[in-house]
């Protein structure tokens, strides 16, 4: 079923929209949640929460890409759930590693900055500009790692690259991101 048909069903408040979304994107959403949570049970709950949040968001929102819209909701719900799990000292998976790796992008001076200094819209712009500068393969690898939470091995298997190539690509991308953040004066 075409995405615009599914979106129209949401606008018509037709509950079949949720079933159609599950049929088309359920597997993808579970895999995104699993990449972050590494728990099938929690991933299924995040998937179901995604449908509810989507139902409550459309309308008024009419996403240009339903797939990306759903992916973002699932990712955010999964990170929220991860935070709760982490607070309860359970769970782990790739998130601590992703954070540890991304710390490399943060210049030391950032420790002196306060949250008020940060601007979400500005950070969003910087990230998207940075992503636009990456080569296709490097960007896919970066997104698979830090958006979807795939492990290095999973990325290597997915694209048929060597593990060392994936690690090297991520390392270079993080260096580039650090340079961009420095240049923009965002953290430094």
């Amino acid at each position: 079923m075409e995405d615009n048909v599914i979106i129209d069903m949401y606008f018509a408040r037709d509950e079949q929209a949720i079933g159609s979304t599950r049929d088309k994107y359920g597997r993808l959403l579970r895999s995104i949640a699993y990449g972050i949570l590494r728990s099938h049970e929690d991933s299924e709950e995040c998937e179901n929460d995604t449908y509810l949040k989507t139902w409550n968001s459309i309308p008024p929102v009419r996403p240009a890409s339903l797939q990306a819209f759903l992916a973002k909701i699932t990712r955010n719900l999964s990170l929220d759930r991860y935070d709760r799990m982490h607070a309860q000292k359970r769970g782990g998976g790739e998130v601590p590693l992703m954070i540890e790796e991304l710390e490399e992008c943060i210049p030391d001076e950032s420790a002196q900055r306060t949250d008020d200094d940060s601007d979400s819209e500005e950070l969003k712009r910087i990230i998207n500009e940075f992503l636009g500068t990456l080569a296709d393969d490097a960007r896919k690898i970066f997104m698979r790692r830090y958006f979807f939470g795939d492990s290095v091995k999973e990325i290597a298997d997915k694209y048929g690259f060597g593990v060392s190539k994936v690690k090297m690509s991520l390392s270079r991308s993080r260096e580039s991101l650090q340079a961009v953040l420095n240049k923009e004066g965002y953290y430094g």
Binding site: M98, E100, I106, A111, S120, N128, Y146, Y187
Partner: peptide
Amino acid sequence: MDNRQQAERLLRALSEADDRYIEEALS
């Protein structure tokens, strides 16, 4: 905000990546 919190913020902010980059990684 320490480095870890900044990194967590960065991780969160990646949810705002353009749809085209998400679609690309999902292709």
